[in-house]
Structure formats: structure tokens, C-alpha cells
């Protein structure tokens, strides 16, 4: 398989404090990759940077044979302002941003596609509902509908199943599996280790640095998980400049 995204000595962070430190690795085309790790491990930061929403402090993210427009990103639902007066249809239609741009119209075909995407995640009939009135599960389904509309070969999901009921989680996992079957690359930040072991063949176990990046069974071994828990507590307010960055 060819590499879709290559991380070279990648350091990411905020206020010069690294949240991800000197990470190397390759996400292959068609991968179904889980990113796991304790809270504060840098998982969401890594996904945000791959999506292009965060500039690296050091190193590089190389998209091999894949342009930024080929990446669809599902941010954490908590980062969305749900008080904003926008309805489900308009929110999902934002998936056509790259095609429609500042002034482009949607047209009948795209509107039909949006309606189909909304129906395919089980939200038919809720097109006119303000997003602030949706439940957590409905919100997540809506964001999956936007990903469907984006129709991108690389899909990044940041904690897509947090606080969802079993049925919603199962529905969305089926969607993820269908994307993989279509040959898309899917990378998801997840906390449910059982789910990761069941569905995701490969896992990056992250604790600011790479603990393991290999087949899921091996990556999530008790020894690796214990190492990850020890590594993550590394924030130091008085930290010196990193010598490896010099």
C-alpha cells in the first residue's frame, strides 16, 4: 500500500509546550487506524494537525498523493458552538465547502445528496431542526452526514463515539467499516479499547511520543498501556528548550 500521510519528526503543541513530541510514522492508504492514549496524550492535537487546523512546532506532515482537500475531519462535538442558530441541513451542506466556496450555489443534485446523507445517518425529518436542539447522538450523526457529503478519501474522526448510546455507536461504526470497504483511509481517536480491538486492525498508542504503532493486539498490550500511562505526565512549566529541536 502507498503512504497517504507521512509524519516526519513531528512536534505539535501550544505556547511552545509540546503535546506531541518528535513523532515519526506513516498512515497507509486504506488504513483503518485507531489513535489511543491517556488524556493529554496529544491524540486530538495530532488529528487537528493532520487535518491542517494546527501548524506544527517542528517537523512536517507530508500528504503523499493526497491534497488537503482530500481530507475530511470530524472535530470533537464539544468544540462546536451549539447555540449558533443554524439548522441540520445547512450544517451538513458545509461539507460542500470546497466545491461551493464563497459564492457557489448548491444546485438540485447536491441538495439531493445532502438529503440522502442526512437520511443515511437516521436523521430524516430533522433537516430543519436547529443544531442546539439535537441530542449528543443526533449531533454526532449530523457530523457523520457532513463527512459523507465531503466524500473524501481520507477521513479523520476525533472521539466520534463519546457518550453515545449503543445503537448510535453501532450505526456509526458500520459507517466507518463501509468507508474502509470502499478503500478510504480512516483515522479515529478512540477511548474504548474493546471497540478498537474489535474493529481497528492497526493502532497508534500515543503518550506525547509514540509508544507503539503497529497491529492493534500488539500495540494495546498491557506493557505498552502501562508505559503510556507513565509517559504522559511530562508537562513542565519550567521546561528548558528541547535539544532535539536545535
Amino acid at each position: 500500500m502507498s503512504a497517504a500521510i507521512r509524519l516526519r519528526d513531528l512536534t505539535l503543541g501550544y505556547d511552545r509546550h509540546p503535546a506531541v513530541h518528535h513523532l515519526d510514522g506513516v498512515i497507509e492508504t486504506g488504513d483503518l487506524l485507531a489513535i489511543c492514549g491517556p488524556n493529554g496524550a496529544g491524540k486530538s492535537t495530532l488529528l487537528k494537525a493532520i487535518a491542517g487546523a494546527l501548524r506544527p512546532l517542528g517537523g512536517a506532515i507530508e500528504r503523499v498523493g493526497c491534497k488537503p482537500r482530500d481530507i475530511a475531519y470530524l472535530p470533537q462535538a464539544a468544540e462546536i458552538d451549539r447555540s449558533f442558530p443554524i439548522d441540520v441541513f445547512d450544517m451538513v451542506s458545509m461539507g460542500y465547502w470546497r466545491q461551493a466556496g464563497l459564492f457557489g450555489g448548491l444546485g438540485a443534485a447536491r441538495k439531493q445528496r445532502i438529503a440522502e446523507a442526512i437520511a443515511s445517518v437516521g436523521l430524516e425529518g430533522l433537516e430543519d431542526r436547529p443544531i442546539g436542539t439535537l441530542s449528543g447522538g443526533q449531533m454526532q450523526r449530523m457530523l457523520f452526514a457532513r463527512i459523507i457529503v465531503q466524500d473524501a478519501p481520507v477521513i479523520l474522526l476525533d472521539e466520534p463515539l463519546t457518550a453515545l448510546d449503543t445503537r448510535t455507536a453501532d450505526d456509526l461504526i458500520h459507517l466507518v467499516e463501509s468507508w474502509r470497504a470502499q478503500g478510504r483511509t480512516v483515522v479515529a481517536v478512540l477511548h474504548d479499547m474493546d471497540l478498537v480491538r474489535r474493529v481497528f486492525p492497526r493502532t497508534l498508542l500515543l503518550a506525547r511520543e509514540r509508544v507503539a504503532w503497529c497491529d492493534t493486539g500488539e500495540a494495546l498490550s498491557p506493557a505498552n498501556l502501562a508505559r503510556a500511562r507513565q509517559m504522559v505526565e511530562a508537562f513542565d512549566r519550567q521546561a528548558e528548550d528541547c535539544e532535539r529541536a536545535a
Binding site: A51, G52, Y73, P75, F84, I131
Partner: peptide, 14 residues
């Protein structure tokens, strides 16, 4: 609108 409601998504597409 997008920058207000979902700034991370906008940053990922534009």
C-alpha cells in the same frame, strides 16, 4: 458563519 459555529472544521477545509 462556519468560523463562528465550527472553527476547527473551517481550518481543516480552508
Amino acid at each position: 458563519v462556519l468560523e463562528t459555529v465550527d472553527p476547527n472544521y473551517l481550518a481543516s477545509v480552508s
